[in-house]
Design a protein around this nucleic acid. Structure first.
Lengths: 343, 343
DNA sequence: GAATCACTTCAAAGCGCTTTGGATAGCAGA
DNA sequence: TCTGCTATCCAAAGCGCTTTGAAGTGATTC
């Protein structure tokens, strides 16, 4: 059943039927009701492809998920971000178009998705420090918004980011205040912008405390549980092992916890651990009280807000760019404690 | 630049240009080259909306992600499944259309997405035992495939599932063989089909060992880390605490580990833990050797295969249904060991 | 020289909607 | 009676592509 058939059965024009169904004012209420009843009766649903062609709007937002054959790893925060964004999309009548593309194909995938009408806007995930995607999308002249930032990119663009530098600076400072001066860093991959900024924050806190950075207790890598585990074991072998650790996510923190427990060290007493907590839904940081002392910011909320900002940008007549910088919140758990002189 | 403009510049018909670009044989090679060059020069990209309207194919697969306001939790395996499926889609020229919809809206979202042309097929996630979506989609007459099964549904449908019953039966049997006879179950939500089947497998193994099931050491709930933790603490308070635990995912298993370590119990010696391992990319079960003894099946591979099966079904002239039942593999880790008489 | 054929190319008809620019009718006001 | 207005409704023109059915061109065959 399409619009033409429906209008024929009703002895009305397609115009009137279309307007009746879409809530336009210039149609008699009695007619509207008649149309609505018939639409229900014949189980009529407008064809979305035709509608988007006619309106010029896809009502769809593209997300392109890079996927590298080597790592095979999905971004930890991806699912929760998507869930948050998806929620907002559905309340605004949008849906989400995901493309999982290999690293090397990513730019062409953007082109394919973006150039002509498949989506009305794009969200860029996990920007690297000098991310080529940003200039590329700006060229394509399609609204887009970056979750995170790309420090080395000069093209202006819309973004939402957490102040990663300040977050980790604050966290590191907290450990310094507890008396720790030998603090290890178990960071994400530092080609990623967020990881670089977190490293900056860590270094900055050390510097202002007059402590020289020591590369032998700093790690950078893909944030899974074994990475946290092996890095920790490794750091504990150091000639002068750290008394506190800072890590980029709750996932490696779980690995840290495993390593420490295996070595018989108690978190918060023998060694302090501070992590960044994205509030991943299935790995909450404890139920009532937090377990890990953490810098916390909800990635789900970030997804929600990114979606809102992008939709605003799409719908605004003058598409000025939007940026938003959030601060992570320090929450105190049981994984940190003052430096004991005995250690 | 659209097809008409491009064809005007080339002094060719739209037909010829379209055919040249889409690789049809009835076009002179010299012409084809001329068209291809011009397309590149003017940066021409076909409008996807128009194309899908004309061809009747959306080249897109829908995934509908239920989202309940209470739980806010994303399915643990979602990201990896999506990554696997997305890989296959992109090699076949499809993309993925995700809708995150509230539980109560889900059926209407299917209708909206499916009824008319937004997608060529649908993947159903996390089926419940008597899932209304299946009959609904069958009615809509659109190809769809269920990841998992719905025991109580009588409508025939395509699915790919792991033999959850056998998996957990095998796992439980392994614990029984180690001498355990007091085995707790920390299951997923049993309104979900997979959780129900796992419960069945657990019960079946106990039954064949002549052991009566004891509801006081069986739990069902949403699989996050604190759920594993609190359930374990709870089970340890039992008058006759279990000497072994079976759990539905590596995520609650992490909570179990935390609880046990907090109680000073060593996994594999004082208490045995067996989990189901979906091979989630950022929570691998150890690096080289497995940590948890587990029933293992890759959800990413499941995503890949579901995508393949659905695409086959979409493209086949006679859309017969496809089903596939996989077996999980028992891997032995360090989290299990023989029952010590002392405990 | 006419007929046949392969090879190219094209005009035009969709696909199913939205939206523009009237048309028509009824009614009040002049 | 005529005008102007409002409330309804409609015909037709897109949106930008694919695809059908046909036509033009040489070359080949009879």
């Amino acid at each position: 059943m399409n619009l033409r058939e429906l209008s024929e059965r009703l002895n009305l024009s397609q115009t009137t039927v279309s307007r009746a169904l879409n809530g336009y004012p210039e149609v008699n209420e009695a007619t509207r009701k008649r149309v609505a009843d018939a639409a229900r009766l014949y189980n009529y649903r407008p064809n979305i492809r035709a509608r988007t062609l006619a309106t010029g709007r896809a009502m769809s937002i593209g997300h392109i998920i890079p996927f590298s054959k080597q790592s095979e790893m999905v971004n930890i925060v991806f699912a929760d971000f998507i869930a948050g964004a998806g929620e907002v999309y559905s309340t605004h009548g949008y849906n989400m178009s995901l493309s999982v593309v290999r690293d090397e194909d990513e730019l062409s995938a953007y082109r394919g998705v973006a150039e002509k009408g498949a989506v009305d806007g794009i969200i860029v995930h996990s920007p690297a420090r000098n991310d080529p995607r940003i200039a590329f999308l700006a060229d394509l002249d399609i609204p887009f918004l970056v979750h995170g930032r790309a420090s080395e990119v000069t093209t202006p663009y819309s973004w939402l980011d957490v102040n990663n530098t300040r977050a980790i600076e604050t966290g590191t400072q907290y450990l310094l205040d507890l008396g720790h001066h030998r603090i290890g860093l178990i960071n994400g991959q530092e080609r990623m912008d967020f990881a670089q900024r977190r490293r900056d924050g860590y270094l900055s806190a050390l510097r202002s405390a007059g402590i020289a950075a020591d590369e032998t207790i700093m790690r950078s890598g893909e944030m899974n549980e074994p990475y946290g585990y092996t890095s920790t074991l490794d750091l504990l072998e150091n000639d002068s092992p750290p008394t506190a650790l800072v890590t980029s996510s709750i996932v490696p923190a779980l690995g840290i916890r495993r390593a420490l427990e295996e070595r018989g060290l108690k978190m918060g007493r023998d060694i302090s651990v501070l992590c960044y907590d994205d509030e991943i839904s299935y790995l909450p940081n404890g139920c009532d009280a937090p377990i890990f002392t953490a810098m916390r910011s909800s990635v789900r909320n970030a997804g929600r807000r990114c979606a809102e900002m992008l939709i605003e940008q799409i719908n605004s007549a003058t598409p000025e760019l939007r940026t938003e910088l959030w601060d992570a919140e320090l929450v105190i758990g049981t994984s940190t404690g003052p430096l004991l002189s005995s250690v």
